[in-house]
Amino acid sequence: MNTVPVDYYVILSAVLFTIGAMGVLIRRNPLIIFMSIELMLNAANLVFVAYASVFQSFSGQIFVFFVIAVAAAEVAVGLALIVQIFKAKKNINVDELNSLKG
């Protein structure tokens, strides 16, 4: 039987998600943080598609489709914001952007 248990996909997704989360936590470059977030989204998408395949349903795929659309919109706005921040601060290090500290 040429089957792969769905649990493997879920484990892979969990690992990718954790790597993405770790990237968010340890990097100071907002562009890489952003990319890590994309990675986490991908990990989630992978589970969606895996289960859609298991249950022979298209809803999972359609959700992924929506996620990709939303991610595109998010990236467009997010990168515009980063550009603006860079223009204002001449720096995009997130550790420098702590003017909200208590």
Binding site: V24, L25, V94, D95, L97, N98, S99, K101, G102
Partner: peptide
């Protein structure tokens, strides 16, 4: 004491979420 938690670093906030 508590205000020190609000250090303004986005990454540390994310850390608390994790």
């Amino acid at each position: 004491t508590l205000r020190k938690l609000q250090n303004g670093f986005v990454r540390s906030y994310a850390l608390s979420v994790l």
